[in-house]
Amino acid sequence: DTFTFTLDGIEVRLHGASEELIKTIEELLKRDIRWEELEKWIREWEK
């Protein structure tokens, strides 16, 4: 599955994202998160 969203005018596609990761990103997007914050968060998630 591919999860697609737009952040700061950039279309982002995550391939093979888990349901948990998708739900977490959706929550972060509701908080009007900035790209830099999401990028940092995703790097931490990957560890």
Rank of each mutant, 00 (worst) to 15 (best):
residue 23 K to Q: 14
residue 44 E to V: 06
residue 31 R to Q: 13
residue 22 I to F: 03
residue 4 T to I: 15
residue 5 F to M: 04
residue 21 L to H: 05
residue 2 T to P: 12
residue 23 K to W: 06
residue 14 L to S: 00
residue 4 T to A: 07
residue 14 L to A: 01
residue 18 S to K: 04
residue 25 I to A: 01
residue 26 E to N: 11
residue 4 T to Y: 15
residue 3 F to T: 01
residue 31 R to Y: 08
residue 25 I to P: 00
residue 25 I to Q: 00
residue 20 E to F: 10
residue 17 A to W: 06
residue 12 V to M: 05
residue 22 I to D: 00
residue 27 E to V: 11
residue 7 L to S: 03
residue 26 E to H: 10
residue 32 D to A: 09
residue 15 H to Y: 12
residue 2 T to D: 15
residue 11 E to D: 05
residue 15 H to D: 11
residue 1 D to M: 11
residue 10 I to Q: 09
residue 3 F to I: 03
residue 4 T to K: 03
residue 45 W to T: 04
residue 15 H to L: 10
residue 30 K to G: 05
residue 34 R to V: 07
residue 19 E to A: 15
residue 9 G to W: 03
residue 2 T to Y: 11
residue 18 S to C: 04
residue 45 W to L: 07
residue 34 R to P: 05
residue 44 E to L: 07
residue 5 F to V: 13
residue 23 K to T: 10
residue 41 W to M: 14
residue 23 K to P: 01
residue 18 S to Q: 05
residue 31 R to A: 13
residue 29 L to N: 01
residue 13 R to K: 15
residue 9 G to S: 02
residue 27 E to R: 10
residue 42 I to Q: 01
residue 16 G to F: 07
residue 2 T to Q: 05
residue 32 D to V: 06
residue 41 W to D: 02
residue 9 G to V: 04
residue 20 E to Y: 12
residue 11 E to P: 02
residue 6 T to Q: 11
residue 29 L to D: 01
residue 19 E to H: 12
residue 6 T to I: 15
residue 36 E to W: 09
residue 20 E to P: 06
residue 14 L to H: 00
residue 10 I to S: 02
residue 47 K to P: 11
residue 38 L to Y: 10
residue 5 F to L: 06
residue 26 E to G: 08
residue 35 W to V: 05
residue 41 W to R: 12
residue 37 E to R: 03
residue 2 T to C: 10
residue 18 S to F: 03
residue 17 A to V: 13
residue 5 F to G: 03
residue 27 E to T: 12
residue 44 E to S: 12
residue 14 L to Q: 00
residue 33 I to P: 09
residue 13 R to L: 08
residue 24 T to C: 08
residue 42 I to K: 01
residue 29 L to Q: 02
residue 37 E to G: 05
residue 38 L to A: 02
residue 35 W to K: 04
residue 20 E to V: 11
residue 43 R to Y: 12
residue 46 E to W: 12
residue 9 G to E: 06
residue 34 R to E: 06
residue 12 V to L: 05
residue 34 R to Y: 05
residue 7 L to G: 01
residue 7 L to V: 15
residue 32 D to I: 06
residue 18 S to M: 03
residue 2 T to I: 12
residue 40 K to R: 13
residue 6 T to C: 15
residue 37 E to C: 04
residue 42 I to R: 02
residue 44 E to T: 04
residue 17 A to H: 02
residue 15 H to F: 13
residue 38 L to H: 00
residue 33 I to L: 07
residue 16 G to D: 09
residue 22 I to A: 03
residue 8 D to V: 01
residue 15 H to N: 12
residue 19 E to P: 15
residue 31 R to E: 07
residue 19 E to N: 12
residue 19 E to L: 14
residue 34 R to M: 07
residue 37 E to Q: 11
residue 14 L to G: 00
residue 5 F to P: 05
residue 24 T to S: 13
residue 42 I to P: 00
residue 37 E to D: 12
residue 43 R to G: 13
residue 31 R to F: 10
residue 41 W to Y: 15
residue 9 G to C: 05
residue 25 I to Y: 01
residue 42 I to T: 01
residue 46 E to R: 05
residue 19 E to W: 08
residue 44 E to P: 01
residue 8 D to E: 08
residue 23 K to L: 11
residue 23 K to C: 04
residue 46 E to M: 14
residue 28 L to A: 13
residue 45 W to V: 06
residue 46 E to A: 13
residue 15 H to K: 09
residue 35 W to Y: 13
residue 39 E to H: 15
residue 46 E to L: 15
residue 29 L to T: 02
residue 47 K to W: 09
residue 6 T to M: 13
residue 3 F to C: 03
residue 9 G to D: 07
residue 1 D to A: 08
residue 47 K to C: 12
residue 6 T to W: 15
residue 12 V to G: 01
residue 13 R to C: 15
residue 23 K to F: 10
residue 12 V to Q: 01
residue 19 E to S: 12
residue 2 T to N: 11
residue 24 T to A: 15
residue 7 L to Y: 12
residue 16 G to T: 04
residue 22 I to E: 02
residue 32 D to W: 04
residue 31 R to H: 12
residue 20 E to T: 10
residue 46 E to H: 14
residue 8 D to C: 05
residue 10 I to K: 08
residue 32 D to H: 09
residue 3 F to A: 00
residue 36 E to T: 12
